[in-house]
């Protein structure tokens, strides 16, 4: 790998941008792509460049055959994040499960008594309101947002910010009735049916979860399913 592409991939990752690197296996020649465009000396035809553009979106690594032999198309997706709204009991087992499955959790709860270092040791915590925190942290295509407080004052601004972002997963805790009311409020705030269908509610896979940790398993399971299989 060319040193300048190594540096470019790392810089893109730090800024939550995607990058793609094509490497011709026989020669080691490379072509780099990020949102600023192409760079490098590997000659690729239109089909090859299209594969690179697709990888930039999908984050999938693959190989293609070209006149120069095999070319590896390697995608570097930004680090996955999960915005956890509510430093509640269920967030305590959820956060370590998110870390184990490669998400960087950010716990957001404006109620200072909940979002404490004692309850969430070593975790990024903020007592900003969710709309402020998410404006600052900017959820992207590699982000999931889970709303866990049951309190519309806290959950709704988070869901609104999530719906306005490209995040790949949105989930909200609460019964079917609670969720129906939530959808009414968000519809009144101007969101259409298609947009609201992005919200998974009640949150989590239907695995009969009872305890807080089991509910956390069902949430992480659902996020994983949407990440790898897409919605629907």
């Amino acid at each position: 790998m060319k040193g300048k592409f190594l540096d470019a991939v790392l810089a893109a990752g730090r800024e939550a941008r995607s990058a793609v690197l094509a490497t011709e296996i026989a020669s080691g020649a490379q072509l780099y792509l990020d949102d600023h465009g192409f760079d490098g000396d590997l000659q690729l035809d239109d089909a090859g460049r299209e594969t690179m553009r697709n990888a930039l979106r999908s984050g999938r690594t693959s190989t293609i055959e070209t006149a120069g032999g095999m070319v590896m198309i390697e995608a570097f997706a930004p680090a996955r994040r999960c915005f956890v709204i509510g430093a509640v009991h269920i967030a305590q087992p959820l956060v370590p499960m998110l870390i184990a499955t490669d998400y960087k959790p950010v716990v957001i709860d404006p109620r200072g008594a909940w979002a404490t270092e004692t309850r969430f040791p070593g975790v990024e915590l903020t007592t900003e309101w969710p709309d402020e925190a998410m404006e600052r942290l900017k959820p992207d295509r590699a982000s999931a947002v889970v709303a866990l407080t049951h309190d519309p004052k806290i959950d709704d601004p988070a869901l609104i910010a999530a719906l306005r972002s490209d995040c790949f997963y949105i989930g909200a805790l609460g019964s079917r009735r609670t969720h129906a009311k939530r959808l009414e409020r968000l519809a009144a705030a101007g969101f259409g049916e298609n947009e609201l269908s992005r919200i998974h509610g009640p949150i989590g896979l239907n695995i009969g979860a009872v305890s807080q940790a089991e509910i956390a398993v069902s949430i992480v399971g659902e996020i994983t399913q949407v990440l790898h299989r897409g919605d629907g």
Partner: peptide
């Protein structure tokens, strides 16, 4: 990916 970023980061540090 966080895994890959850490590995590339170490590669960059060794290089530096």
């Amino acid at each position: 990916m966080s895994d890959t970023a850490e590995i590339l980061d170490q590669a960059a540090r060794w290089r530096a």
